[in-house]
């Protein structure tokens, strides 16, 4: 027991250190540049204590749950050698963690407002709601597909940069055909899909997979799933914008 207590204390100190830069930046700009006092100092200190404690708990939870379960699943799938289930799992993980993501819901709603302003969508609540839902589904499917491709790449040992660079090439070409109102959203959508819980899990899963397949290197082959998850929404959202403009 004392050992786990000292371990947790170390995690607390580490989160304090992780948070120090952000506190320093905000305090410096508030006091030295804008020259204004800090409002509600007690509230800020309580908030900061919660942030530090929360980060330490999260990192402990990573080591206890997200990392081991990601690795255990990867090992179990390779032992059973059932490709269909493995790919289905990859899709479910990508789709399931993205579809309800609050950041994505917010971006989709904002995108519908922009599209209505640009005249791509009829400016009525139902039409905008429809547009936002279709867009959200498009992004969730794209993340599911990207993990399927990413897992397949780990199995085959294909070099990541060839796939990602060709992906970027396609994105650049699509930018010239996509409606202006969708481009900003498309470029931002890659970033919103990867939540704080998904990233550690997907990373552990990829590394675990590369670890349990003979001939694969955990560093060279195991990383890269997140890169796919960030790239494919760009393509899918631009394709969505092109199809929507073209069809409707």
């Amino acid at each position: 027991m004392p050992q786990s207590v000292s371990r947790f204390l170390r995690l607390l100190v580490e989160s304090l250190r992780d948070l120090a830069p952000i506190v320093a930046v905000i305090a410096f700009f508030q006091l030295a540049v804008l020259r204004q006092p800090l409002p509600d100092l007690a509230g800020i200190l309580i908030g900061l204590a919660m942030v530090v404690l929360g980060l330490a708990l999260f990192v402990r939870g990573l080591e206890m749950a997200l990392f081991p379960i990601g690795e255990a699943l990867a090992a179990a799938f390779t032992r059973r050698a059932n490709l269909a289930w493995l790919l289905l799992f990859a899709f479910a993980l990508g789709f399931g963690t993205t579809v309800a993501e609050p950041a994505l819901i917010a971006v989709a709603r904002e995108a519908a407002a922009i599209a209505a302003e640009a005249g791509v969508v009829v400016d009525a609540p139902e039409a905008r709601e429809d547009y936002a839902t279709y867009l959200r589904m498009t992004v969730a499917v794209s993340v599911g597909v990207s993990l399927v491709i990413g897992v397949f790449r780990i199995l085959k040992g294909w070099p990541l940069h060839v796939l990602i660079i060709s992906g970027y090439g396609i994105v650049v070409v699509m930018t010239f055909f996509a409606p202006d109102s969708i481009i900003g959203i498309a470029y931002d959508s890659g970033g919103v899909t990867t939540s704080t819980i998904t990233v550690p899990l997907v990373t552990a899963f990829g590394v675990g997979l590369a670890h349990s397949i003979r001939g694969r290197n955990p560093i060279v082959d195991g990383f890269g799933l997140i890169a796919f998850a960030c790239l494919s929404p760009l393509m899918f959202v631009m394709a969505f914008g092109i199809v929507w403009e073209w069809g409707g």
Partner: peptide
């Protein structure tokens, strides 16, 4: 661990 993750992120 899952409880820690959820609680930690909430805080």
């Amino acid at each position: 661990g899952f409880v820690y993750v959820a609680l930690g992120l909430t805080l």
